[in-house]
Nucleic acid binder design. Structure first.
Length: 392
RNA sequence: GGGGGUGUGGUGGAGUGGUCAAUCACAACAGACUGUAAAUCUGUCGGCCGAUCGGCCUACGUAGGUUCGAAUCCUACCGCCCCCA
């Protein structure tokens, strides 16, 4: 059996009640322990921030324990208030189902299909009656709910807190009860919800579950999350090898080590080594290494290597990318119209780009948006530093 | 039930009758620089049209009204916040 102690070192932030207790329980149990990870299919993407949980789960499974992936198909329709200062819009059933399918595909990139179980919380949350809900709610006080910093913030700012947002932790907590689980894992931002589950499980089944929180991907210099879904800045596990590589390279240098540590499975010695190398070497080299490591995880070694050399040729050496999206050129169209049909966006935006000198045709800068370029198949249009289109 | 507030662009937040497509900050985008970035500097940042200049349309919770003219005044409605009951 794998080293149980090491299980709580790398990706883990906190263990409740304690790491020692968790280790003790695993070792003393005849049966494998069950841990679950809950994810709400609220969007089509799982991002690198979630991958920490999955990587940890992979180790847990390798250590001979049981894992359940809990798909929050019910809770996704309510919306989690965590980290948000405004209530989130609810999703329709159809959206949720679409996202669910996409999630599983992404999870399978890290956890082998069949190595874990899958559960859906609509199985037990849907059939609950109002009576059930009231009874469940009686275990929790309003004071307990509003101590959450995010609720506090809204209270102070005078922003609305909708009553149904209180149900979210309750429902998520009930998942623990329904699964009758030994442990739950989740990002550190889910601490409150997970503790709610711990309390409910204690109250209803007198069971004491472990709460394992994982480290969040944060930029140590700013303290901000590296993956920010609401701002649209994140690396999706479904991104192509090229996109993934490029996005990682575009991250601030200060995020190199967090990414290396929490978003890859590379041996820790390599990470410490990288930390040392950062002091003397060009950080670019190390970031490339991390990017390659991450891309390999999702696309395999060959694709990662390819993405790396493509990146080097385009950005470092300024060459054209090998594969460029094509578009159909309408003869006689002005340059601004060409940009709109090739890259999308509004006419005004296209004109701006052109006037700012961001547009090149076959490497030649053109600043007159009204000019009518004579384009032929294979001509390459560039808008901005890394956006290329080819004439079909 | 009563009273007092408030609602502006992706966000925060100015603006209280014309010079407002709306100060400013953040975010975003482009350019320079670079190591791909970050930081910094410069520019852009509702849409559409016309060669810089300019013109038109849409927009300041919703619907009406007053006015030559309204984000700004009035009325109703809707949402939200606070206080009293």
């Amino acid at each position: 059996m794998a080293n149980i102690e090491a299980l709580f070192d790398r990706y883990v932030h906190t263990v409740i009640p304690s790491k020692e207790e968790a280790v003790r329980r695993i070792k003393s149990s005849q049966e494998p322990l069950t841990v679950y990870l809950g994810i709400d299919p609220t969007g089509p993407d799982i991002h690198l921030g979630h991958s920490t949980n999955l990587l940890w789960l992979r180790e847990w499974i390798a250590a001979g324990q049981r894992a359940v992936l809990l798909i929050g198909d019910f809770t996704a329709q309510i919306g989690d208030p965590t980290g948000k200062d405004a209530a989130r819009a609810s999703l329709t059933r159809a959206q949720v189902e679409e996202n669910m399918a996409s999630y599983l595909d992404q999870v399978h990139k890290i956890l082998a299909p069949g190595s874990f179980h899958i559960a859906y919380n609509s199985d037990w949350l849907s059939p609950m009656t109002f009576t059930d809900v009231v009874q469940l709610a009686s275990h929790v006080t309003v004071q307990q709910m509003i101590v959450r910093d995010m609720f506090q913030r809204r209270l102070e700012a005078g922003n609305p807190i909708h009553l149904h947002e209180f149900f979210y932790p309750l429902m998520q907590g009930y998942d623990s009860v329904a699964l009758n689980t030994d442990a739950e894992v989740g990002g550190n931002d889910q601490f409150f919800n997970m503790m709610m589950g711990r309390e409910l499980l204690q109250a209803l089944k007198h069971k004491d579950k472990l709460v394992i929180t994982t480290k969040l991907l944060e930029d140590p210099t700013t303290g901000k999350k590296i993956m920010n879904k609401s701002e649209g800045r994140y690396v999706s596990l479904r991104d192509s090898a090229h996109d993934m590589f490029g996005k990682i390279m575009a991250m601030p240098d200060s995020t190199i080590i967090p990414l290396y540590t929490y978003a890859t499975a590379a041996p820790l010695e390599r990470v410490t080594e990288a930390e040392r190398r950062l002091e003397t070497e060009n950080p670019k080299t190390i970031k490339q290494e991390v990017a390659q490591e991450i891309v390999t995880l999702y696309h395999g070694e060959a694709a990662a290597q390819e993405a790396r050399s493509a990146f080097e040729s385009v950005f470092t050496k300024g060459e054209l990318p090998k594969e460029i999206q094509t578009f159909t050129h309408v003869p006689g169209a002005s340059l601004s119209e060409v940009i709109v049909s090739g890259f999308g966006g509004t006419t005004s935006a296209a004109k701006r780009l052109i006037q700012q000198g961001a547009v090149k045709i076959n490497g030649e800068k053109i600043t007159d948006w009204a000019s009518v370029p004579q384009l032929k198949g294979g001509d390459v249009i560039q808008a901005g530093s890394h956006d290329f289109r080819k004439v079909k």
